[in-house]
């Protein structure tokens, strides 16, 4: 069921002309903490067309089901509601996992996390993404949860999004009006909200051919099973000397309504020696992007401080990885 699917067809997704619908709405704290799930119907789409058709017919009462580790909890706790749940795991394009060192990675939106770290080539090529995949929930969550789902859930604290942004990933979206591509950095619009228009859904993520080194680091009070208090993803490319940074991208989680790019922090590193001093300066630059809130996962000032600490640390790891590849 879950075997690898050939990717060919999903590089091109046929255009569809369907009425748009809202896919997600903002999550708010709910007092409903039910034991059982609310009533809905289930449909398993086997093609992108069928999914678009089902989602369109379902209107804003239809929800996409990939790994289910967010949506099932939200339906149970009344944070979201649905009349129709559309399982997209039987659509080959959504389960595609294809890596080509020259071309990059095509990651179907419903591919569960464990398949990323179980694939040594992918783990070596995109370590930041695999850092994320290993810590989204426990192992049992990773058996179901997908990177695409983590992105579509659009939590400000999502562990995969800073990595995707740092790695320069692009979303491939299907919808009634056809297929379009959006950089991951522009996908999320607010907590629990994203740019998916009515009738659209995420088909796959496209990562460019691997270069340099990358890493993701989050801070949590325990050592596992927590939501990030702060998360930082980084990608760096070294110059031919291996001593200076040629290019860098840094993205942050849990310090703003959406995961954010720390553009200045990345820029500040270009041409700089790959040293603790440079990393620290980048950390200070990254802190300027942070606009955290105080909530049950941490106070705002602490989060801002952590951005500096984690940026510095994650850069050291990313550089180390970049060097080891040379």
């Amino acid at each position: 069921m879950r075997g690898t699917t050939k990717y060919g067809s999903c590089w091109k997704v046929a255009a569809q002309n369907r009425p748009p619908r809202s896919f997600y709405y903002s999550l708010s704290a709910s007092t409903r903490k039910a034991t059982a799930l609310q009533d809905f119907s289930y449909a398993a789409a086997t093609t992108i067309d069928e999914a678009v058709s089902l989602l369109s017919a379902g209107g804003d009462r239809a929800r996409v089901l990939a790994g289910g580790t967010d949506i099932i909890v939200q339906l149970r706790e009344g944070l979201r509601s649905a009349d129709l749940v559309v399982d997209v795991k039987k659509i080959p394009e959504l389960m595609a996992l294809d890596f080509d060192p020259a071309r990059g990675l095509l990651l179907g939106a419903a591919v569960p996390c464990y398949r990323l770290y179980d694939d040594e080539r992918i783990a070596a090529a995109y370590p930041a993404l695999v850092d994320s995949a290993r810590i989204i929930g426990g192992w049992q969550i990773q058996g179901r949860a997908s990177i695409g789902g983590n992105l579509c859930n659009s939590s400000p604290a999502a562990d995969s999004i800073p990595s995707l942004i740092a790695l320069g990933a692009t979303c491939r979206i299907a919808g009634p009006a056809g297929t379009r591509e959006v950089p991951v950095a522009e996908f999320c619009t607010a907590p629990g909200r994203n740019c998916l228009a009515r009738g659209e859904f995420l088909v796959s993520l496209v990562l460019p051919a691997p270069r340099g080194g990358s890493a993701y680091l989050r801070f949590i009070p325990r050592n596992e099973m927590d939501i990030a208090v702060v998360g930082v993803g980084a990608w760096v490319e070294l110059d031919p000397s291996g001593q200076k940074i040629a290019d860098a991208r840094i993205a942050l989680a849990a310090v703003a309504p959406t995961p954010v790019v720390a553009a200045e922090a990345g820029k500040s590193l270009v041409g700089q020696p790959a040293s603790e001093a440079s990393f620290k300066a980048a950390g200070e630059a990254a802190k300027k992007v942070a606009r955290p809130i105080t909530d049950r996962r941490g106070p705002a000032d602490y989060r801002t401080h952590l951005v500096g600490v984690l940026t510095q640390r994650v850069l050291a790891t990313a550089v180390e990885r970049a060097k080891s590849k040379k």
Partner: peptide
């Protein structure tokens, strides 16, 4: 589920087909 550990509270029974 097909050899992969999952939380069965977060799997719909229909998905077990």
């Amino acid at each position: 589920l097909d050899g992969v550990p999952v939380d069965s509270c977060l799997v719909l029974a229909v998905e077990a087909e």
